[in-house]
Simulated scan of single mutants.
Amino acid sequence: MLKSELMSMDVRALVMFCTVAQELHFAKAAERLHMSQPALSHQIKRLEQTVGASLLTRTTRSVRLTPAGTVFRRLAEELCNEIEQMVKRTRQAVSGEAGSISIGLTTTAACSPLAEALYRFRQSRPGIEIDLQELNSVQMQGALRLKSIDVALMRPAAFDADMAVREIYREPMYVAMRPEDDLALRPRLDLQDLSGRQLIGYRTDASPYFRHLVHQAFAHAKTIPSFAQESVLPTLLTLVEAGVGIAVIPESATVSRGRTLIFRKLPQRHELTACIVMTSLRGRQHPLVAALASALRQ
């Protein structure tokens, strides 16, 4: 069948034929379709002309499917069901009940309570396929523009104007150290207590957010830090385990090394609070972004 012939066949004609094939009675089929019997007969004849085959055998007392009609009925019903599912799933995707969403998340975001919130979100929407991609926060804006992810759970950055950003999680900062460190004996610590100690800092290229946060916090405390080395999470914690120095880390990073390191919480002040934000590309808002943000904030 040529494309031009297919264009003359609409879904309504298939539904009409399937109804007649089920009832094998034009009057009953017309009643179900809320149309007149002559109009239904006319549409079936047009369909047969388009197909190029007789689909029904009609007598004054009965209607039967021809062999071609039997084949056409099976395929037409399958097609109608697929079209129905296509429309249903498209509407569900628009309403956020179906479809897929790709989420980029940082290592520390993956270790935070947001992971449990993502699980609850997945369980509440079984029709949604969620693809999680672990990325560095520095990579997130590029991934959003390339459309390799729909939304990013990341640390704050110098965002461009095409990024829509909303804060979804805040967490305190901790000092990570080996168990035998003298500081481990203190129940409470502040940044002034770290004066003169060798610290593991954050690399500018890979962790600009934490580098800025830590340096600003020390400046606010009027304390000059001494950095032995710079790294990124979670490698930074390995350096602490190796005895290179101590480190100021977010609470979410404490869950991975609880058996080998000691963590002391720093005072929960604004300059010692880390954030995770949800970021998406303006003008390309995924239907699930609002629902996801709401779920992650709970």
Rank of each mutant, 00 (worst) to 15 (best):
L132A: 06
A21P: 00
Q139A: 06
G99L: 08
L288A: 10
E241P: 15
G258N: 11
A184S: 07
I101M: 13
I246R: 01
L65T: 09
T204D: 01
M278I: 12
T50G: 07
A109M: 08
K28A: 13
G243S: 14
R259H: 10
H212G: 05
I276S: 00
H42Q: 12
P126K: 02
M173E: 13
L40Q: 09
L33S: 15
H42V: 05
R257H: 12
R155M: 07
Q141H: 11
S280W: 07
F26C: 13
R73E: 03
L213R: 05
L144P: 08
E84V: 14
E271Q: 06
N136G: 03
Q37C: 03
D205L: 08
Y169P: 12
Q298K: 12
E5Q: 09
K88P: 05
F227I: 02
F26L: 12
A21S: 04
L135A: 00
V15Q: 11
S207Q: 02
S102K: 07
T90Y: 00
D160P: 12
F218A: 04
I246E: 03
S62W: 03
S95W: 02
S231A: 09
L239G: 15
T108M: 01
D205S: 13
V255H: 01
E31S: 15
R155H: 04
Q43T: 10
R74D: 04
R297P: 06
C275N: 11
Q268R: 11
R74S: 07
R89G: 02
T260S: 14
M154F: 01
R58A: 06
Q229M: 09
I276L: 02
R145Q: 04
